[in-house]
């Protein structure tokens, strides 16, 4: 315990993450049970006969007490068995596999474009703080933050896809596509996601670096007569790494959620589309499974953010 304080700290954080994930699974499970009536009633509607309700309840195991149902479900999830969809009887794990990789591909492409761009713009804004490049960048991002995803998405479809015809308006992807075709198909959703996340990430990067720039050691470096860009590169940046990594991972987590709406706009066969389709059909097992996966990715990214900031901050390595 005393000899490896860093390892202990990280192990504690991971344990906390696992605990959180477990609590979230309980919350998701309880969340789908708070309805007036029960799941069977919700699926079949008010007009259902007593016999149909009884059959469905029996099939879903609704006559078991809640904690038994929860444990059954959890045990299945731990073994990779996510259950069966109520609407089309398909195995959920198989349906999700392909869609999850589609979603991760889309999010990864957006991250590859957005992260370096946001950091660069953030640095530029700090370098020219208070002058026109900073004002232009800050003003644009304040506007961009307020734009809903579907406004950006449909603007792109209307002007870039329909009027100019540069890219397809809907992102259909299938197994036989080459990487090039795939990238062309997802160009517009990637652009939308990038624009949505860029503004947030850039603003937070700017704030993080500015925060460091107001420290006394930066003033010392200024008084020594170092060039402004050298100060940023050699003194400010290493200290700003932890907050910036934090900003990036928080925004990646945001990306995972933004994906839901963007997939629906571009009819992209990913997890978000899958979730939304099944919420409308009240397909509870599918919703539980997808929500759990979304939450796991979200918690995982936040965990990474915490661990990186533990590693990057020497003060956290030696807690008193």
């Amino acid at each position: 315990m005393r000899r490896f304080p860093l390892l202990t700290l990280i192990a504690q954080r991971i344990a906390l993450g696992v605990l959180l994930l477990w609590a979230v699974s309980v919350l998701i499970f309880v969340g789908t049970m708070i309805l007036p009536g029960d799941v069977a009633q919700a699926i079949l509607g008010q007009a259902a006969t007593e016999q149909a309700l009884h059959n469905l309840r029996l099939e879903l195991g609704l006559y078991d007490p809640p904690h038994i149902r929860y444990l059954d479900w959890l045990w299945g999830v731990l073994q990779g068995d996510l259950g069966q969809s109520l609407t089309n009887r398909a195995d959920i794990a198989t349906s999700i596999g392909r869609r999850l990789s589609n979603t991760l591909f889309l999010a990864a492409c957006a991250a590859i474009v957005a992260v370096p761009l946001a950091l660069l713009l953030g640095l530029l804004a700090v370098r020219y703080q208070g002058r026109w490049p900073d004002r232009v960048i800050s003003g644009t991002t304040l506007t961009a933050i307020s734009l809903p995803e579907f406004f950006i998405g449909y603007l792109l479809i209307y002007f870039v896809a329909v009027q100019l015809g540069w890219f397809p308006s809907f992102s259909t992807v299938h197994a036989g596509m080459t990487l090039g075709q795939r990238l062309e198909a997802i160009a517009l959703p990637v652009a939308t996601l990038t624009l949505v996340v860029l503004a947030h990430m850039m603003r937070m990067t700017r704030a993080a670096i500015l925060n460091v720039m107001q420290s006394p050691y930066i003033e010392t470096a200024e008084l020594k007569g170092l060039r402004r860009f050298d100060i940023i590169r050699r003194h400010a940046l290493p200290n700003a790494v932890a907050p910036i990594v934090n900003v990036v991972t928080i925004n990646l987590a945001y990306l995972i959620v933004g994906v839901v709406v963007v997939e629906v706009i571009f009819v992209y066969p990913g997890m978000g589309q899958y979730l939304v389709d099944h919420v409308a059909r009240r397909d509870v097992p599918v919703i539980q499974a997808t929500a759990l996966i979304f939450a796991a990715v979200y918690i995982g990214l936040n965990l990474v953010a915490d661990i990186v900031s533990i590693l990057a901050n020497p003060r956290l390595r030696h807690p008193r």
Binding site: V257, I287, Y298, N302
Partner: peptide, 13 residues
């Protein structure tokens, strides 16, 4: 710790 939109979808289902 659950994204707001996802949690809202769970409840609204």
């Amino acid at each position: 710790s659950i994204p707001t939109l996802i949690f809202a979808l769970v409840i609204l289902s």
